[in-house]
Simulated scan of single mutants.
Amino acid sequence: MMLKKICIAATVATLTFGSMACVQAENMKPGKGVTVNPARATWNTGFFQEALVRRGLEELGFKVKSPKDLQNPIFYKSVALGDVDYWTNGWFPIHNDQLPKDFYDKAEKVGYVVKAGGLQGYLVSKKYADQYDIKSLDDFKRDEVKKAFDKNRDGKADLTACPPGWGCEKVITHHMEVYGLEDDINPIKASYEASMASAIAAHMSGEPIFFYTWAPNWTIFKMKPGKDVVWINVPEINPTPGQVPALDRMTVSGVEGAVSDPTKLGFVVADIQIVANKKFLEKNPVAKRFFEVFTLPLSDINEQNTRMNDGEKSKKDIERHVDEWIAKNTDKWNAWLTEARKVAN
């Protein structure tokens, strides 16, 4: 209704002004009339990014449907076919082996939600890493280190690891074998959320903890790298079969709270990126430009993920998190929208 009112010139004298106002209003909503079909990953640590991008497209005038929650391989097949238009949850190069044949003929990666943001690795209580000079997994072969981290008194250091069936379980098992740690470290494979809750409680009580995690994740917001815990190295880069093409992505510089720089994480470090159908991007350059400029600090995602882990995980909660993030980052948000509007036809 407001757009119509702006666009109607009441008299000849106001016709030119009315036309200019109409054009200006339309430029604010260049996506008007276009319906967008997004998808979303099944892990909730990616829900916040999806909701922010969806909000941005809506502010640009697009009608954005509720996202379809899809498993990775199904999404990549669907976006190539054009059944969905995009998602914000691409992890590369980790997802490379899940792409269908000739994928890049029909879809592409756009921008970086978080460049090198998909971290994985092992962390140790900073207090005890300093006390025992722990720099890598190899240090858990030392008797005094094993004893300090041995909670069940079986002679091995206890590692909060991954439940059976998770991709990280396979990598951790490989590490235990190739680094000769099977007699030194006991990977705990119970429910990750419950195990990490127990680890955090132990940390709060002053006990040493040793765990695997990934980012974005609530764990490294609750326990901050460099202050509470530290990322440690693997002894050497020895990739799990199938990881060789990503060999250079297992050592990374600039990891906050790591014991060394660069850090040999031993897991592939992923870029988190938007993936979209090429025809959709060609028809909607405004959306493409928004995808290109959209990027988030990893700490912001970790903070929101922590709120979800603490119980704020309903649809309304996530939309409120989006509102609050935009309110705190108004200049950045408006700059993204302005950039996107510049390419409107």
Rank of each mutant, 00 (worst) to 15 (best):
Ser78Asp: 02
Tyr76Asp: 00
Phe48His: 01
Tyr76His: 03
Asp83His: 09
Gln49Val: 11
Val36Pro: 05
Ser66Glu: 15
Arg54Pro: 02
Thr45Asp: 06
Tyr76Ile: 00
Pro38Phe: 09
Arg54Met: 11
Thr45Met: 13
Thr42Gln: 13
Leu57Pro: 04
Ala41Val: 06
Asp69His: 07
Lys77Ala: 00
Asp69Thr: 07
Asn44Thr: 12
Val64Gly: 08
Phe48Glu: 01
Gln71Ala: 04
Lys65Asp: 13
Leu57Met: 13
Phe47Asn: 15
Arg40Phe: 03
Thr35Glu: 01
Ile74Pro: 01
Gly46Asp: 08
Tyr76Cys: 00
Asn44Asp: 13
Gly33Ala: 03
Thr42Gly: 07
Gly61Phe: 05
Pro67Ala: 10
Ile74Ala: 08
Asn37Glu: 00
Glu58Ile: 15
Val36Cys: 03
Glu58Ser: 11
Leu57Gly: 05
Gly56Trp: 01
Ala41Asp: 13
Gln49Phe: 04
Val79Pro: 00
Ser78Thr: 11
Thr42Pro: 03
Asp83Tyr: 09
Ser66Thr: 14
Asn72His: 10
Ser78Tyr: 07
Asp69Lys: 13
Leu52Phe: 03
Leu81Gln: 12
Arg55Thr: 10
Leu60Glu: 05
Glu58Ala: 10
Leu60Asp: 02
Val53Gln: 14
Gly56Asn: 10
Thr35Asn: 08
Ala39Met: 11
Arg54Gly: 03
Val79Asp: 00
Asn72Lys: 15
Asn37Asp: 00
Thr35Gly: 13
Pro67Arg: 11
Glu58Trp: 04
Ala51Pro: 05
Lys65Cys: 11
Val36His: 05
Arg55Ile: 03
Ala51Val: 04
Val84Gln: 01
Gly61Arg: 12
Lys32Gly: 02
Ala39Pro: 05
Phe75Arg: 03
Lys68Glu: 10
Leu81Tyr: 06
Val84Ile: 14
Val64Arg: 07
Pro67Lys: 05
Gly33Thr: 10
Leu70Ala: 10
Val84Phe: 12
Val34Tyr: 14
Ser78Gln: 09
Trp43Phe: 15
Leu52Glu: 06
Gly33Ile: 10
Val34Ala: 10
Asn37Tyr: 12
Thr45Cys: 11
Pro67Leu: 09
Phe62Trp: 10
Pro38Gln: 07
Leu81Pro: 01
Ser66Tyr: 07
Gly46Ser: 10
Gln71Trp: 09
Asn72Gln: 14
Asn44Glu: 13
Leu57Lys: 05
Gly82Phe: 08
Gln49Cys: 03
Ala80Ile: 04
Ala41Trp: 05
Arg40Ser: 08
Glu58Leu: 12
Thr45Glu: 09
Gly61Leu: 08
Gly82Met: 06
Ser66Gly: 07
Val34Trp: 15
Val64His: 11
Glu50Ser: 09
Val84Thr: 08
Gly61Tyr: 08
Ala41Met: 07
Gln71Leu: 06
Ala39His: 07
Arg54Phe: 02
Gly56Phe: 07
Arg54Asp: 14
Leu57Trp: 15
Lys32Val: 14
Glu59Trp: 00
Asn37Arg: 06
Pro73His: 12
Ala80Glu: 04
Pro38Cys: 04
Gly33His: 06
Lys32Arg: 14
Ala80Trp: 00
Lys65Ile: 06
Phe62Leu: 07
Phe62Asn: 08
Trp43Glu: 08
Val64Phe: 11
Thr35Cys: 09
Gly56Cys: 07
Lys68Gly: 01
